[in-house]
């Protein structure tokens, strides 16, 4: 794939613009080019254009944007996969700071709320807390989350209640520690997740699964949390 491709970019500077606008760019594309490369080209043409990016290889999770209606990481989205015109907007449901840069502080607060670290009642051993290979395998599909926010910002329940519903990313992280054999705060964690909002606003819409660039499954993790609550209650 090579040739000219049209990009429609969402532009908005709250300090200057009365309202957001879509800006059109024709970019000369080359074989193997990623969306991030096209955004960098637009940035080269217009320095005032703002978007987050860092590692360029789907590890840091900085450059999550909404592309043709779907949340994706720009650095690992090949242009060959996209239909022109490529419409790029900021992640939905988050306040915009400028152009494609959104305020993710609420998202991080929800992550922090699940206390994403190992908690133990027993004294820590000299070296490490050992796990069997099976216990370790339970964490696969959970620890790989890079906090890009593609899942939570594609979740309608998170759009409606971003302050109360933890969102798929935080709930995936919650299950990552509930499932960890080394953690000893299971009851406390489950109690903290109960109530009408934090966990139970999930209606299994599964936008999170569709959006995750690491192919993780927050909906399944949420199901596991509910199953564990059920097991503990009987």
């Amino acid at each position: 794939m090579a040739g000219l491709m049209e990009f429609r970019i969402w532009r908005y500077d709250p300090e200057r613009d009365a309202r957001p606008r879509m800006e059109s760019h024709q970019i000369e594309t080359t074989r193997g080019m990623m969306l991030r490369d096209a955004l960098l080209e637009i940035k080269r043409r217009d320095e005032s254009f703002a978007f987050r990016h860092s590692c360029g290889e789907g590890v840091c999770g900085s450059d999550a944007v909404n592309v043709n209606g779907r949340n994706r990481l720009a650095c690992i989205t090949p242009l060959a996969e996209l239909k022109a015109p490529v419409v790029v907007r900021p992640l939905p449901g988050r306040p915009v700071i400028r152009d494609l840069v959104v305020d993710m502080s609420r998202f991080y607060r929800q992550y922090e709320a699940v206390e994403p670290w190992l908690q133990r009642a027993d004294p820590l051993p000299e070296k490490e807390v050992l796990q069997t290979p099976e216990e370790r395998a339970r964490l696969d599909g959970l620890w790989e989350c890079i906090l890009c926010g593609c899942c939570s910002t594609s979740c309608p329940s998170f759009w409606w209640n971003p302050d109360k519903f933890l969102g798929p990313q935080a709930l995936l992280a919650a299950w990552r520690f509930l499932a960890d054999s080394r953690d000893q705060a299971q009851d406390k964690r489950l109690d903290a997740l109960d109530g009408p909002y934090k966990l139970f606003r999930c209606h299994t819409i599964m936008n999170c699964v569709d959006a995750c660039p690491k192919h993780l499954n927050p909906t399944r993790a949420i199901g596991h949390i509910r199953e564990l609550m059920l097991k503990k209650s009987v």
Partner: peptide, 13 residues
Amino acid sequence: MSRGLSGFRAWLW
């Protein structure tokens, strides 16, 4: 766990 008919208890019912 849930108090009243909310959260886990509502989901279970």
